[in-house]
Design a protein around this nucleic acid. Sequence first.
DNA 1: AGGTTGATCAAGCAAATGGTTGATTAATAG
DNA 2: CTATTAATCAACCATTTGCTTGATCAACCT
Lengths: 135, 135
Amino acid sequence: MIVDPSSDDRLDRAFMALADPVRRRIVARLSRGPATVNELAEPFQITKQAVSKHIQVLEHAGLVSRTRDAQRRPVHLEAAQLEALTAWIDRYRLIHEQQFRSLDALLAGTTTSGTDAASPEPGQSAGTAQEEPES
Amino acid sequence: MIVDPSSDDRLDRAFMALADPVRRRIVARLSRGPATVNELAEPFQITKQAVSKHIQVLEHAGLVSRTRDAQRRPVHLEAAQLEALTAWIDRYRLIHEQQFRSLDALLAGTTTSGTDAASPEPGQSAGTAQEEPES
DNA sequence: AGGTTGATCAAGCAAATGGTTGATTAATAG
DNA sequence: CTATTAATCAACCATTTGCTTGATCAACCT
């Protein structure tokens, strides 16, 4: 069992998990509190097995976890992973806004040194293919 | 331009688009400024055609858009859609935190009115979401 | 015009995804 | 012990995804 899914893999799974409307509704429901598979399956027209698989996907993505209560296995939300997603998005969203600001400055005639964002030809450093924009 | 595929579909596509590490790296790169398909393809070991398809996926998700510059079609980031994603996530993340707080209060003996009476209505008046599991 | 560059179109293929039905494991209730 | 409930396992199928190669389109440049 691979237990160290290279936080990159974690992001993959988390985004993919939320790409499905059924799974998003499950998350929405769980945000109001834990629920069993049967409860979660009720609003949908698909089988319980299908919902069980959806929950497995969410669990494998670190978005939910399951405990035990008699025969039931209540599912509950894991907020941390949701935060990881917003963290990823916000990083690039903020950088983008920053660029807008420097573009603003450029148009205003003020050459703001520091960020080399306004370069018309982005320096194509092939080695810096990392996902992290050196924060 | 058909830009009204039931904003639910939009979320589907946007989350799925970011589920792929290649596409996430493309977004990361575009956060530094526009780039052409060739430039975007360089860091990867896959063909240009494959990258072109990735960009189509991102474009169809509303995450990027393309303009024209001679033979080139520069791709640039669309911040709005990124914000839509964080908006979706934050809604449920905040609800969850709110629940934790009321649970905290409960364990502390401070009966803050009802158990689950914490009005779960952070921002769902956005109108775009029928994804709420009606309480 | 002819040639080069930048990007897409098109067909095809291996792998993954979402769904089903049927059988099986666990725990509770009689 | 038997029956019931809750959930998973297992095999299977249809569709989609990601990627490839080869051909085509569109705009530049001599």
